[in-house]
């Protein structure tokens, strides 16, 4: 392949029947096995959709997860890391609330949390499906901590838990494992070294290609520091920031041993980007990086869009990549 591989960041919208089933499950009106059947049905839908749309590396779509942290911390139907539980409602902004997880005891790996779903998804397709985990810094930062005396101790123990899970995913055959760290730049001066150290613990000795996804907040505060993360690919939300990150890469070249994941469609806007605009974004990035080191992706997980919007955004992305490849004779 001539570079410009396409993939997605993680989540897809849940079809109505699944959203309804999840709500029934949390009210005790549906059992776990029945919910699991619907999760698998929706997962299969997204695997087929991604094949149909022509993505190169697939995600399973996170049909079984409500929130990327709470899924591992006691959310109904999730798999809970030992020492975590779900807490009360906290407001994040406007009229939006979420159940914030709590660390109440020493963190322990509870056995495989994501492997069955990964294996199911990978079993449906010949294309690689990424293993998807939330990184240790984000897991701790987005939880209360009633157990550890310091954030450092909590993050490093959490890193061991995520490491064990990544190990299982690799053993099951996952070639790509993505560790999302959207909170990694919450305290860049104080904690970035800790976040890098914890990431090192996660990937230690595992023969898989690790990717990370960083979004929201001030990415410029951790560039070029983020290049110290022990991953093959770093993905950033370029579209949402009008490709301003290109300036950062202009000033300080991206690590020549790493790939860059370029977010080219906004996941928070209903509006569909024109193919030409995405083509222009990819071409602008190609002035700084060779195609074999670029991955083309949406800005973030697409779960807040409708099924139709999400597919339309993926289609625009794939069409734009085809056009660029054709123009530049990459194929």
């Amino acid at each position: 392949m001539g570079g410009l591989l396409t993939t997605a960041v993680g989540s897809y919208p849940k079809p109505d029947y699944l959203a309804k089933a999840r709500s029934q499950f949390s009210q005790g009106k549906l059992d776990r096995d029945d919910l699991a059947k619907l999760e698998r049905r929706a997962t299969e839908y997204w695997i087929r959709a991604q094949e149909r749309l022509g993505l190169d590396v697939l995600v399973h779509g996170e049909m079984e997860r409500g929130d990327m942290v709470a899924y591992f911390a006691g959310e109904p139907g999730g798999t809970t890391i030992g020492g975590m539980k779900i807490g009360g409602l906290v407001r994040s902004y406007g009229n939006r609330y979420y159940h914030k997880p709590v660390i109440v005891d020493k963190l322990r790996w509870p056995g495989p949390m994501t492997v069955d779903m990964w294996r199911f998804a990978q079993g449906l397709t010949d294309r690689p499906v990424k293993g998807m985990l939330t990184g240790p810094y984000t897991m701790v930062e987005w939880s209360f901590d009633e157990h550890y005396p310091s954030r450092r101790e909590a993050v490093l123990d959490m890193a061991q838990v995520i490491h064990r899970e990544a190990e299982e995913l690799a053993r099951a055959g996952a070639r790509y494992i993505q560790i999302d760290e959207p909170a990694i730049h919450t305290r860049p001066q104080e904690d970035f070294d800790l976040a890098v150290e914890a990431f090192g613990v996660v990937v230690e000795g595992i023969a898989a290609e690790f990717h990370t996804h960083i979004c929201y907040g001030e990415v410029e505060l951790i560039y070029p520091d983020m290049l110290r993360l022990p991953v093959k690919q770093i993905h950033l939300a370029f579209k949402n920031t009008g490709f301003e990150y290109l300036k950062l890469i202009e000033e300080h070249p991206f690590d020549s041993r790493k790939d860059l994941g370029v977010g080219v469609v906004d996941v928070h806007e209903h509006e569909l980007e024109p193919v030409d605009e995405v083509v222009a974004g990819i071409k602008a990035t190609l002035k700084l990086m060779p195609p074999e080191r670029l991955w083309i992706e949406p800005d973030c997980g697409l779960k807040t869009r409708t099924v139709e919007e999400a597919e339309a955004k993926l289609r625009v992305m794939v069409d734009a990549v085809r056009q660029v490849k054709h123009e530049l004779e990459l194929e």
Binding site: R91, S92, Y93, A183, T186, R187
Partner: peptide, 8 residues
């Protein structure tokens, strides 16, 4: 994001 919180 509001300072070093997970609120916006």
């Amino acid at each position: 994001r509001y300072l070093d919180t997970n609120t916006y």
